[in-house]
Design a protein around this nucleic acid. Structure first.
Lengths: 228, 228
DNA sequence: GTATGGGTCATACGACTGTTTGAATCATAC
DNA sequence: GTATGATTCAAACAGTCGTATGACCCATAC
């Protein structure tokens, strides 16, 4: 029982340096495309440090994922709490629910003064995780991170759109997530932005949200098609 | 000059078997996550055959991409041609332009009788290419494959939505692409579908389009926000 | 002082990576 | 028949991969 752990600033510094570097490289090159050696090289730490602090590459990926997504989903739920609290008994305003859903992933760090510019690095990784590279993340962890968010927001959207069938609601939430993920993923990509005639630098989270929310709100509110 | 090439059925068979297997494995595991040895093993061909027929792994990726995306974009342009021909001088109907844009990637093979069920394999790869793994594909090839489609559809959407500013049109097309890519990418994913309460089997392209088009049309038609 | 244990280090393991080579095989042309 | 050129094959190339090991450093506890 001698030698209490003692937070040891050096240790946490190595751990965080690994997480930061891994996050950046995973975002840029994907999980399979990034080697542990590249991470440790750029982070300036020893190769064995990853296995000491995390245990394996898969565990490191999970750690990066949890550190990235956890705060975003917490912020979403906090915003939704506030929106529902203000709405009281009645249904909250659809636009505000949408804002609670899409703004936190768009913001995610990179605050400059009063504005929040997209941090291309983290943003890109979020898109990667949502879309193509979920296979690398523990199913259990992924499920735990998103279940509550999906349930809560599905309920909120449903209350905002009482006329919609369950099936239509499911599909439209799916489309909403898709638009959000795609933006989040391609936001920092110079090639795609230039093809679309957009300025990839200085994208501001609230400006994007101001574009997205009316689009998505109108789509969600569209009269339900009654084809079979 | 003796021994003309002669199409040699075996050669094209090997080539195609490599392409088919690579497509399936790339879709499932990504480009970095799939080794040439795994491809040749599953395709039942020799390892060197890939370098003989394609030259390198990157060239194989490009070949898979071109074979997959080329026909889809050709079908899109053909449908748009037809829609614009029928519209004559006036603007075409927004819903029909949307259909020309989203139906071909949703269909892409897998016809069963009169219905077209999603081919999870190809679909998944399309989503992968659009979202996270574009880095592996030659920039030139990617640009060539999509430039005409983007230009033509941007023009068509613009004529359908004369009241929209250029900037708003750009953003909304971006959102539309995002919703489409996300659906295309997650359509065959059992985990995500179950989280969303959707049946991942037997997804039919036209049924998805019938859900998507009203959503996207309403979003595209939404009155333009006039915030700065 | 010595002992403890968290953290770091260089080094090595076996397996796997994309790529290359040169011989073997094949159908066709003459 | 022989010659030709396209295709396939087993084998090896030099690297890199994720992982594991055991010595070492160093602050703290006693």
């Amino acid at each position: 029982m001698a030698g209490r752990p003692s937070p040891d600033p050096d240790a946490s510094s190595t751990r965080e340096r690994i997480l930061d570097t891994a996050e950046a490289l995973f975002a840029e090159q994907g999980f399979d495309g990034t080697s542990l050696r590249q991470i440790t090289r750029e982070a300036g730490v020893n190769l064995a440090a990853i296995h000491y602090h995390f245990g394996s590459k898969d565990a490191l990926i999970d750690a990066v994922f949890a550190r990235l997504v956890g705060p975003i989903n917490a912020a979403r739920l906090a915003m939704l709490d506030e929106v529902e609290r203000e709405a009281g008994e009645g249904a909250p305003e659809l636009e505000r629910v949408l804002e609670a859903f899409i703004l936190p992933p768009l913001q995610s760090t990179a605050d400059v003064g009063t504005r929040t510019y997209l941090d291309g690095r983290r943003i890109k990784l979020i898109g990667r995780i949502y879309s193509a590279e979920r296979q690398h993340i523990s199913k259990q962890l992924f499920f735990n991170q998103f279940r509550e968010v999906l349930e809560r927001f599905r309920g909120a959207f449903g209350r905002c759109l009482p006329g919609l069938s369950e099936a239509a609601l499911t599909w439209r939430i799916h489309f909403t997530v898709g638009a959000m993920v795609h933006i989040v993923h391609t936001a920092g990509d110079p090639v795609l932005c230039s093809m679309l005639g957009m300025d990839s630098t200085r994208l501001e989270a609230r400006a994007i949200a101001r574009r997205m929310i009316p689009f998505l709100a109108a789509g969600l509110r569209a009269p339900e098609e009654d084809a079979p």
